[in-house]
Design a binder for these strands. Structure first.
Length: 222
DNA sequence: GTGTGATCATCT
DNA sequence: AGATGATCACAC
């Protein structure tokens, strides 16, 4: 496999993504010399990894953007045939110490979402027949930023409080906290509400489909 | 174990 | 159908 060199500018990255639009994933897999899996049950990150390869994202980077030099995060976004977002979007892990800071201004979530290249993946069913949609280079507008900030502040407070039973995917308008593990019995350490070390299921930050759906509508219908 | 990439399975 | 909780693979 030959990795593409990282793009040197935001515009170059966006143009690369634009040239992929309209192609299906069978085409992309062939171009990357990769087999298309029958489904994603055992390789849920397959689509994301193929887009990273195709666009020249830095391989194997940890706790950083996909394009560190450009400060841009790459995310695929599953949609139905009409371009309507059909699932939530993983953002980053949510450690129980508050997740890179309790304050929105300095947290990982804000840093990750400051500049995102969204690549819609259109259609369901057989992976190879899903198509790459029109990309969107995005920064939260004032309204979106306010919603994210409010959600984060509330949820980070709960995380830090150690009140495990208060953590629920039902909370949050745009951001939510959900389990993120390899197995149901996987645990990590946390401080409970009495300040004692305890085991708990790892959690992560996600964007609700409602939020990204509205985001795409703003960008493409207005 | 924690980070990356997410979708699957199930219940309402 | 939409949403929540559970799960899969790989790098380091």
């Amino acid at each position: 496999m030959k990795l593409r060199a990282p793009p040197t500018s935001e515009d170059e990255l966006f143009q690369r993504a634009r040239r992929l639009a309209g192609r299906d994933l069978s085409w992309l897999a062939k171009r990357l010399d990769r087999p298309v899996p029958p489904d994603l049950k055992h390789d849920k990150g397959w689509i994301g990894h193929r887009l990273e390869e195709a666009l020249g994202a830095t391989a194997g980077n940890l706790a950083d953007c996909d394009f560190p030099k450009l400060g841009i995060e790459l995310k695929t976004l599953p949609t139905d045939e009409n371009g309507k977002v059909s699932g939530s979007t993983f953002v980053c892990g949510a450690p129980y110490d508050g997740g890179g800071g309790r304050h929105w201004e300095s947290c990982w979530v804000r840093k990750k979402l400051h500049r995102v290249l969204w690549v819609p993946i259109v259609g369901g069913g057989y992976v190879g027949s899903r198509r790459i949609g029109t990309p969107l280079m995005w920064t939260p507008d004032a309204e979106e930023e306010a919603i994210l900030s409010a959600d984060y502040t509330e949820l980070a407070r709960i995380l830090h409080s150690g009140e495990l039973d208060q953590i629920s995917g039902k909370r949050g308008q745009a951001l939510q906290l959900r389990p993120k593990a390899l197995h149901g019995d996987q645990t990590t350490w946390m401080l409970d509400d009495e300040g004692e070390w305890a085991r708990a299921m790892p959690r992560a930050w996600y964007l609700r489909a409602k939020f990204t759906r509205r985001m795409l509508e703003k960008a493409f219908l207005l």
